[in-house]
Amino acid sequence: MVASAATAALLFLAGCSADTTAQLKRIGLPEAASDRAPAIGDLWIGSWIAAGIVGVFVWGLIGWAVIKYRSDNNDMPKQNRYNLPMEIFYTTAPFVIIGVLFYYTILAQNTVTARSAEPEVTVNVTAQKWSWVFNYKSADNPDVGEDVWEGGTIQQTPDLYLPVGKSVRFNLRAADVNHSFWVPSFYYKLDVVAGRNNNFEMTPTKEGVFRGKCAELCGTYHSAMLFNVHIVSEEEYEAHLRGLAEAGNIGEARGPKDVDPQGEAKQDQGEEVGQR
């Protein structure tokens, strides 16, 4: 029976595309694009392995009890008030499992939340109703020579550009209500809390375009809070920043009024009409 199940599984995997097979190996996680992803990925897969071992063991005990104590009559089996070895086992086993998972969770957490003294790139992120603003600092980009920014509106999804292989620190702030900065391929997200500045650091490891979104239900147009993450070469990153400077996006934008003043006014008027 086991051999048949293994053969069926192999045939199933053989019929899958390379992308599907890779995703199955990651147990549903997206393609990784940051140096912090392996720690979370290993913890995720390890948790599934632990859960699988416990599940197989419990199913085995159930099967053993069903087969060993099956009977053709309805006589009640001998009743015991307690079974000391069994009680000790099912009391201590959960603590052992939780303790092991907690230990590896702490190791992963320490890896993911580690910060360097001087990151190579700093991006100040402002979350707002209902989009994002990304500010790039001139100190990290002397070839550009200016602080530049790019932002989105409820009608236009913004782009975030990052250089591959460079450590990036994200400073997060909210212009209004609570949001959450999430790029699934980074295997990390962090709340953007009104009145509090949060930050985290990571290094992009794979070039490509990845999706980002708000992971906190922040209001009416929460679903519009999307952005695209472009992980590119350093040359392409600097060229994009120079393009922002040439377009006049100079300085620091800290909210929707800096990105689209007319759109902000229209949104306020629309909310007032809706409330009436």
Rank of each mutant, 00 (worst) to 15 (best):
W130I: 06
V56L: 11
S17I: 07
R242A: 13
M76T: 11
N74W: 13
E235P: 00
Q155R: 15
Y221M: 07
Y221L: 10
Q23S: 13
L226Y: 05
A108W: 05
Y161S: 09
P85T: 06
D159P: 00
R169P: 05
L226N: 10
F95V: 11
W48K: 07
R36G: 06
A108M: 10
I53R: 08
R115I: 13
Q275Y: 13
Y90K: 01
V56P: 02
T122F: 08
P184M: 05
Q267I: 12
H179S: 05
F200Y: 14
Q156S: 08
T157R: 11
I62P: 01
L162H: 09
E236F: 06
E272Y: 14
E235S: 08
K189Y: 13
V96D: 03
W132Y: 10
V56R: 09
Y136G: 00
D143C: 07
V183A: 06
L10I: 14
G28T: 02
S185T: 08
V58Y: 00
A253L: 06
R211G: 13
N83R: 11
D268I: 15
Q23C: 13
L107W: 09
L29E: 08
Q156K: 14
R81V: 15
N135I: 03
D143Q: 14
I49E: 05
D258W: 06
F170I: 07
W149A: 00
I53F: 07
V112D: 01
F200G: 03
V164D: 03
S180N: 13
Y103C: 04
E216L: 11
A37F: 07
W130N: 11
R81P: 01
K166I: 01
A174K: 07
A3V: 08
L241A: 02
F210M: 00
I231A: 07
G195Y: 05
Y136L: 01
V123T: 04
S71A: 12
I62E: 03
N228S: 12
I97E: 03
E150Y: 15
G15N: 05
R211M: 11
D35A: 05
N228V: 04
H230F: 07
L10K: 13
Q109P: 00
N178M: 06
V229A: 03
S47E: 06
S4Q: 13
A174L: 02
W59G: 10
M1P: 09
G145D: 01
P163Q: 03
G195I: 09
E235T: 09
E252G: 04
P163G: 02
G263C: 04
V133S: 01
P77S: 12
P30S: 02
Y103D: 09
R70W: 12
A108L: 05
A194G: 01
K206A: 03
Y237H: 05
A37N: 05
G145P: 01
F95H: 13
E271P: 06
N178W: 04
A194P: 00
T203F: 14
I53S: 04
T7K: 12
E150Q: 14
A39Y: 10
K129I: 14
R70V: 10
G151M: 02
W132F: 10
L172S: 01
E120G: 03
T7M: 12
E252Q: 13
T20Y: 09
E271G: 03
A18Q: 07
G63H: 02
G195S: 06
